[in-house]
Simulated assay, not measured.
Amino acid sequence: MHYTFKTIVMSDVHTAMALLISSFSKYAGKEGDPHTLSKAELKELLQNELGDLLGKASDKTAVDRIFKELDQNQDNSVDFSEFGKMVFCLTVMCHEYFTKK
C-alpha cells in the first residue's frame, strides 16, 4: 500500500514526513500486516534505504540486533512509531556528526 499526497507545494519538513511515510509503506506488508515491518521487510528497507549509512545492514546478526532494539513492545514486528524512533536517532547522530558535536 502506497500513500499518495496531494500535489501541493509542501515545506521541506512536510516533504520529509511524506517521504518517511511513503518509504515505510513501500516495505511494510509485503509479508502480511501493511502497518508493520517483519524482520525481512526491515532488512530490505535498511539495505535499500540506509545501506550507505548503516554499512552492516546485510549482516544477519546486526539486523537481528536492530530489530530487537526497535521492537519495543516485543510483538515481533516494527510499527511506524518504532521505525520513526530509529530514523530520529539516526538523524540526531548525523546532525551531531556534521555539526561536530
Rank of each mutant, 00 (worst) to 15 (best):
H2L: 13
H2A: 13
Y3R: 13
T4K: 07
T4F: 06
F5Q: 00
F5K: 02
F5M: 05
K6P: 14
K6M: 13
K6A: 15
T7L: 02
T7R: 09
I8G: 05
I8D: 13
V9N: 10
M10V: 10
M10Q: 06
M10F: 04
M10T: 12
D12L: 08
T15H: 00
M17T: 00
A18Y: 00
A18G: 03
I21R: 08
S22I: 05
S23K: 09
S23M: 09
F24T: 04
F24A: 05
S25K: 15
K26A: 10
K26F: 09
A28C: 14
G29F: 12
K30C: 06
K30W: 05
G32H: 08
D33P: 01
P34N: 08
H35D: 13
T36C: 09
L37E: 02
L37P: 04
S38V: 06
K39T: 05
K39W: 03
A40Y: 07
A40R: 15
E41A: 11
L42D: 00
L42I: 07
L42A: 08
E44C: 05
E44L: 07
L45D: 02
L46V: 06
Q47K: 13
Q47F: 08
N48Q: 12
N48L: 02
E49P: 00
E49R: 02
G51I: 05
G51A: 06
G51H: 08
D52C: 06
L53F: 14
L54S: 08
G55C: 07
S58Y: 02
D59R: 04
K60W: 00
T61D: 15
T61S: 15
T61G: 11
A62N: 10
A62Y: 15
V63C: 01
D64W: 10
R65S: 15
I66V: 15
F67P: 02
K68R: 13
K68W: 04
K68N: 12
K68F: 08
K68A: 14
L70W: 01
D71R: 05
D71W: 02
Q72G: 09
Q72D: 12
Q72I: 15
D75T: 09
N76E: 12
N76S: 14
N76Y: 02
N76A: 12
S77W: 01
S77H: 10
V78W: 01
D79E: 12
F80C: 09
F80N: 04
F80W: 11
S81F: 07
E82V: 06
E82K: 04
E82A: 03
F83Y: 15
G84P: 02
K85I: 15
K85H: 12
K85F: 10
K85G: 06
M86K: 01
V87K: 01
F88I: 11
C89Y: 04
C89E: 07
C89L: 10
C89G: 07
L90C: 04
T91W: 05
V92F: 03
V92S: 06
M93G: 01
M93F: 03
M93T: 09
C94A: 14
C94F: 08
E96H: 12
E96P: 02
F98W: 09
F98N: 13
K101W: 01
